[in-house]
Simulated assay, not measured.
Amino acid sequence: MIKIKDISKQFGNYTALKNLNLELYEKEFVAILGPSGCGKTTLLKLLAGFMKPTSGNIIFNEEVVANVNSIVPPEKRNISMVFQSFALWPHMTVEEHIFFPLKHHRYGKIRDKQEQAVRVKDALEMVGLNHLKNRYPSELSGGQKQRVALARAIVPRPALLLMDEPLSALDAELRMEMRKEIQGIHRHLGTTIAYVTHDQGEALAMADRIVVMNKGEIEQVETPENIYTKPKTVFVSTFVGKSNLLKGNWVTKDSFVPTGFPLISWPDIGISEELKDQNLYPVRPEQWILDEPQKIGMKGKVHFAQFQGNEIHYSILMNDQTLNVYSSVFTKRFKPGDAISLSINANVTRPALSY
């Protein structure tokens, strides 16, 4: 287990991290998600041992590896790292890259050459590069280079694998393919992974838990399902997927009345206390039910309609707010200018999942 206890990091007068507390469990895949400048890469560098915290402790299996007074350097931690830039050596072949940590990694070092060869072969097969083992980086595509970097990182079987936006340099199709590769490797090896990304789709698709960061602080730590369906803060509800934040009044603990529609009442579907205190009700675009104008209902007008394959994405003007609504292509289609009614389908939001 890895414990991050009361960690802060300052650079001069700038505070990059503010009193972070987090635990990473054995064999867990944790995505650290947030916008640029939120502190996620700083946190990864602290876990790697590239810098000391300003305050707090980082603990690996009951051993303090970093605090304000001391730091265990990267080479003395059982970790590997995959960088955004691949970080490959131009004079080494694919196979030589993967042999390298077995000769030099403190925890992954293997003296027996036959065992080295078996380990390298296994790593090449895991990333599908056995047929390219004699090529140099200049002869590889971007996706192939990232597979080399991944194989080099996993071959010493580290206790912790750190990944810093490893797919951001790849095109959309390759990113989808590499997600599956990384998930498959995680299942096969069971290594704890800390995966930094600003891509919410990556985090939702791959992680066991997501750490949502903003302005150097942790906003929420939950399973992907709970992050999406039960956001605790305004930031999480709008950053992870799209969310419509409706203003109104919580007239009781379990009943919300949206502003301008006194005859409408919505149930509590797992809204956080923080959002309730601000008299807000988050509604995901797919939670709306779009219909012909009703006598009793939230009335609005279609502003935009965009075909997206299996869905129509609507922008709906209602009072002084523009709402995002996703509707199936198999339901009635509406055009810009059409008057409509909106209601919510509370059953779209699933119950909380225990971790």
Rank of each mutant, 00 (worst) to 15 (best):
L275G: 11
Q294N: 05
F256Y: 00
R284L: 10
G248C: 08
G297L: 09
V211I: 07
E273V: 09
I218A: 12
G270S: 00
N249M: 09
L204E: 08
V212S: 02
P293T: 04
S255M: 02
K295P: 12
A305S: 11
S243C: 15
I227Q: 01
L204R: 07
G297P: 11
W250C: 10
V236L: 08
Q306G: 00
N226T: 14
M318N: 02
P285H: 04
Y228Q: 02
P282I: 12
G300D: 06
E292A: 07
I210N: 01
K232Q: 07
P293G: 03
D320Y: 10
T322I: 15
S272M: 11
F307Q: 01
N319Y: 05
Y326L: 09
L317M: 00
K247S: 15
P282K: 06
E219M: 14
T233N: 15
T229R: 04
G297V: 11
N226L: 08
M318K: 01
T223F: 13
K232M: 04
T233F: 13
P293S: 02
V283R: 00
F261R: 02
W288K: 01
F261D: 03
P258A: 12
E286I: 06
P282A: 08
A205I: 09
M206H: 07
D291H: 05
D208K: 03
I271W: 04
E311M: 05
I271G: 05
I227S: 02
I264S: 00
L323F: 12
G260K: 01
K242I: 13
A203H: 01
V325H: 07
S243Q: 08
L280C: 12
Q308L: 12
L245C: 14
G248T: 14
N249A: 08
S243F: 10
L246D: 03
N324R: 10
K299C: 13
V221L: 07
I271N: 02
K215H: 09
A203V: 06
N214C: 11
P282M: 09
E219Q: 13
M318R: 01
E217N: 14
V211F: 02
I289F: 02
V240H: 08
V212P: 06
G270Q: 01
N244K: 05
E202G: 13
K242H: 12
R209D: 06
G270L: 01
G297Y: 06
D208I: 07
